[in-house]
């Protein structure tokens, strides 16, 4: 039974130092308020796995020194330019990088949700993405003839963390058509969700809503965080805060600017 807890810190308690933490792409519902709470708590050595990419969330966590390793297909601020703290950390060698490609991450999470050890994927052969992934294997298709194919080991995160529009009191979470959030939750040992609001009634009772609902069965803790994806978007609810992201890109270009950003928007709880 999922716990609906009053504070972000209580919801995030199971994200310990060294946690293998799965997070979604920018436009699926990123738990940004929770991310700021993790930085305030000073979490260390996270192994961050993006499904399949990340933007501000990874850049903030990396810049704040919370990340030991990241597995992702890309980290970028999109229209706002490169992710400056990610870029600086990779060049400095201060984080370990596991470069992937989007469908490889989707497939490896699917392997975990099915409880199978690996998933095969086309493409990849002859790329340096594959060359730098000793944990991926190439085999000859056992049902074919001279048909090499890559196998990806299942990704089984300790915790999945994301933000969604609403949950009911039983902990069922409405994710809409962001189906990768369900895959993430199915694949992870624990799932922590922040939501805009808790609603009365049963999200599973109505077929229109239940099709987009992650059953509480897969959820461990929930906290309410209004505008919890800010400054990133929450699909169908609010858009990017363009002004803020432009300011972030400008400040995070230098370490000093980034420290100023943390002080103003992360450590000062009135702003967060």
């Amino acid at each position: 039974m999922p716990q609906i807890v009053p504070t972000l810190d209580e919801a995030l308690a199971s994200i310990a130092d060294g946690c293998v933490l799965a997070v979604p792409r920018e436009n699926s519902g990123v738990a940004m308020a929770a991310t700021r709470a993790l930085i305030r708590r000073g979490v260390k050595r996270l192994e961050l796995i993006a499904l399949p990419t990340s933007s501000l969330q990874a850049d903030l966590l990396i810049g704040a020194g919370c990340v030991a390793l990241i597995e992702t297909s890309a980290v970028s601020l999109g229209e706002f330019g490169p992710a400056p703290r990610f870029t600086a950390a990779v060049i400095a060698g201060s984080i370990k990088m596991k470069d992937a490609t989007c469908p490889a991450l989707h497939a490896a999470f699917q392997a975990a949700e099915k409880g199978v050890p690996f998933f095969p994927l086309r493409g990849l052969i002859g790329s340096d993405v594959l060359a730098h992934r000793p944990d991926w294997r190439m085999i000859d298709n056992p049902f074919g003839n001279n048909d090499p194919i890559v196998l990806l080991p299942a990704i089984k995160p300790d915790v999945a963390l994301f933000h969604s529009p609403m949950a009911d009191r039983a902990g069922n979470v409405w994710i809409g058509r962001q189906r990768e959030l369900a895959t993430m939750a199915h694949a992870s040992a624990k799932t922590i969700v922040t939501v805009e609001k808790i609603v009365d009634g049963d999200l599973l009772a109505d077929a229109t809503l239940s099709a987009g609902t992650l059953p509480g069965f897969y959820v461990d803790s929930i906290a309410v965080a209004p505008r919890g994806a800010w400054p990133l978007p929450l699909p169908d609810h609010y858009a990017w805060d363009e002004k803020h992201l432009a300011e972030y890109a400008r400040l995070a270009a230098s370490e000093e600017g980034f420290a100023k950003y943390l002080e103003q928007y992360v450590y000062d709880r009135r702003a967060a």
């Binding site: 297909s73 890309a74 060049i91 060698g93 470069d99 490609t101 990849l124």
Partner: peptide
């Protein structure tokens, strides 16, 4: 190349990453 310039472990330039390219380019 959507990843980096220079030695992979110690790049001179780092780009965002390959996104879906290492798959979509084939299919």
């Amino acid at each position: 190349n959507l990843v980096s310039i220079g030695e992979y472990e110690h790049p001179k330039v780092r780009f965002p990453g390959s996104f879906g390219a290492a798959y979509l380019y084939y299919v």
